[in-house]
Simulated scan of single mutants.
Amino acid sequence: MHQVKGVVARSKGQPVEVVTINVPDPGPGEALVKVQACGVCHTDLHYREGGINDEFPFLLGHEAAGVVEAVGDDVTSVAPGDFVILNWRAVCGDCRACNRGEPQYCFATHNATQKMTLEDGTELSPALGIGAFAEKTLVAAGQCTKVDPEARPAAVGLLGCGVMAGLGAAINTGNVGRGKSVAVIGCGGVGVAAIAGSALAGAGTIIAVDIDAKKLEAATRMGATHTVNSKDVDPVAAIQELTGGNGADVVIDAVGRPETWKQAFYARDLAGTVVLVGVPTPDMTIPEIPLIDVFGRGGSLKSSWYGDCLPSRDFPMLVDLYRQGRLDLDAFVTEEIGIDDVEAAFDRMHGGDVLRSVVVLG
């Protein structure tokens, strides 16, 4: 058993606390990871606000990189000393998606069996099965993806959630390729990652849409060729004007609201693709759209789960591109903070001043 500091949300809407938690030694199929860095993602705030479920208390944090300290019986995929990025898609290998050769859609991903606890024995619910705002965490070995140990933990750990979601929404789900036109609605961390992914894939026209001028500036730095401030103009008309009156080949909704999804639907070209990667709340419904428009415009309406990534395939490849200077993951790290600063980072997130705050633990 290991006693370490961790960031816990005890109840809905209350400030997080840094407390001592108990982390078990790894059992069969599990790995103990010494966390080096973990990004502050909007999903962590959703957990604190009760927007995911009500299984409090939560051990927050999930965009993480670190070093494997110990493994349980039968673990062969990683070993002590391996530098890994943690993921929340530990594929099972035997569900209907895995058996048809599509493990990126695995329907039975798994987590550690043992529970981390508070000092009094209260079981913790780790965010996305990870719980990495902690000096050490216990995960399923399949949640550890070995990557180049020379990579900067604060940067590559972001592939564990938001940056991978955006990159994958463009490359994997949207099938963005050379010369295609892309519009991204919402330029927070995920949206800007979708822009970076579109640039990496060779898209010709990349249009960033947001109501915040600072976010549009960040989008330009990451590869946007045009920006649209939708506070001032109709984004659908603006996207059409920038694409010869046709609309974009791929429109990515990184906000996840009925209004932005409807904008994405009408801002795409005939036979174009809409990708929903922003996460809606349970009460939101698809806006009223004439069914003839759905039929007549053709194309695809997709949602993107975790950027439709396969960690074992995508993480090492993207880290290699980062090490080659072809994917600027460092640009997503706005600030490095301590474990005591998570609540303040949530406040800065609301203000739109950061792409990512990253907790550095060593």
Rank of each mutant, 00 (worst) to 15 (best):
H2D: 10
K5Q: 15
V8P: 04
R10Q: 10
V16Y: 04
V19A: 12
T20Y: 01
I21G: 12
N22S: 15
P26Y: 08
G27M: 04
P28H: 01
P28N: 02
V33N: 04
G39F: 09
V40M: 08
D54N: 15
D54Q: 15
L60G: 12
H62E: 11
E63D: 14
E63L: 09
V68K: 08
G72P: 07
D74S: 14
D82Y: 05
I85R: 03
N87M: 03
W88T: 03
V91H: 02
D94E: 15
N99C: 03
R100K: 12
E102L: 03
Q104L: 02
Q104D: 08
Q104S: 14
Q114Y: 02
E119L: 14
E119R: 08
D120V: 05
S125C: 10
P126R: 07
P126Y: 07
L128P: 02
E135N: 11
E135K: 06
T137G: 06
L138W: 08
A140L: 11
R152T: 13
R152G: 00
P153E: 14
L159I: 07
M164H: 03
G166I: 04
G168C: 09
N172G: 06
T173D: 02
T173H: 01
N175I: 01
G177C: 05
S181A: 10
V182G: 07
A183I: 10
G186C: 11
G188V: 07
G189C: 06
G197C: 13
G197K: 11
A199L: 05
L200W: 03
A201Q: 05
G202A: 11
G204E: 13
I206Y: 05
I206T: 06
D210A: 07
A213E: 15
A213S: 14
A218D: 14
R221I: 00
V228M: 06
D234R: 01
V236K: 09
A238Y: 02
G245A: 03
G245M: 05
N246P: 00
G247R: 05
D249G: 15
A254D: 13
V255H: 10
P258K: 10
E259L: 13
E259Y: 02
T260Y: 09
K262R: 15
A264N: 07
D269E: 14
A271W: 12
G278E: 02
G278P: 01
P280W: 06
P282A: 11
I286D: 01
I289M: 00
I289N: 00
P290T: 03
I292Y: 11
I292W: 06
V294K: 00
V294R: 02
S304P: 05
S304H: 04
Y306M: 13
C309W: 00
C309E: 00
P311R: 01
P311G: 03
R313V: 01
P316V: 04
V319K: 03
L321T: 00
L321C: 00
Q324C: 02
G325M: 06
L327G: 07
D328R: 00
I339G: 06
A345W: 03
F346I: 09
R356C: 06
R356L: 05
V358Y: 05
V359S: 10
